[in-house]
Simulated assay, not measured.
Amino acid sequence: MKSRLFVVVFLFASLINSSCKDNCNNELAVEEFKKDLQTVAYSIKNTNINLKELPLVIQKIEKVSSIESESDSNYLGKFHPTSSDVMKWTNWFENNKEKLCLDNKNNIYYLKE
């Protein structure tokens, strides 16, 4: 009886694990991360533009990379990333892009194990 229960639990866990891995869309994550880096770089070069999504982009990148922006922040978020931020995030991306996934539902990045 215990061996049957173990087999059922093992199969269930394997099924859940494989379905989670199948949800990782690496190509879309890489494309989206590159787009977000370009948004940040564009905001540095063009300071007169209004990018209201910039604080969310910075927050997404910071969360997945664990590299905080040097940008000043207020209650609305961070609005002035630096060239150094872009370089650090680009280096992190080059080292981790194979593990990068995108959760489309929540629009956040995560690293697959």
Rank of each mutant, 00 (worst) to 15 (best):
V30H: 07
Y42S: 13
I44N: 03
L54P: 03
S18L: 10
I49R: 15
S18E: 05
V40W: 00
D72F: 15
S43I: 10
P55L: 06
G77Q: 05
L76R: 12
L51S: 11
N50I: 15
C20F: 15
D72Y: 10
F79N: 06
N23I: 01
N46Y: 14
I44F: 06
H80C: 02
E70F: 13
W89L: 14
D85M: 12
A41T: 06
K45W: 01
D22K: 13
N95Q: 15
N91I: 15
K34A: 09
G77K: 05
A29P: 01
N48C: 09
K21V: 07
I49C: 06
S65I: 13
S19D: 09
V86T: 10
P81C: 14
L28I: 03
W89C: 12
D36F: 00
P81W: 11
S43L: 07
Q38Y: 07
L28D: 02
K45G: 11
A41L: 14
P81N: 12
S71G: 11
L56I: 12
H80G: 09
K21R: 08
S69D: 04
P55F: 04
I58F: 03
L54W: 08
V30S: 11
N74A: 03
I49P: 05
L54Q: 05
P55M: 06
V40A: 01
N74G: 09
V86M: 09
Q38G: 13
E32G: 02
Q38I: 03
F79H: 14
I61F: 11
T82A: 13
W92M: 08
K35W: 01
P55A: 02
Q38W: 04
S66H: 09
S65E: 02
E68N: 09
K45I: 06
T82Y: 08
D72L: 14
T90F: 05
K88Y: 14
K88N: 15
D22M: 12
N26G: 07
L28Q: 10
C24G: 11
S84Y: 13
S69V: 14
D85E: 12
D72M: 14
L28H: 06
E68S: 08
D85P: 05
E31F: 11
K34L: 04
P81R: 03
N91R: 14
L37Y: 03
V30A: 02
L51N: 12
S83R: 07
F93M: 05
C24K: 00
S69R: 02
E31A: 10
D22I: 04
I61P: 00
S71K: 00
V64C: 04
N95K: 15
A41K: 07
S66K: 07
E68R: 09
L54S: 05
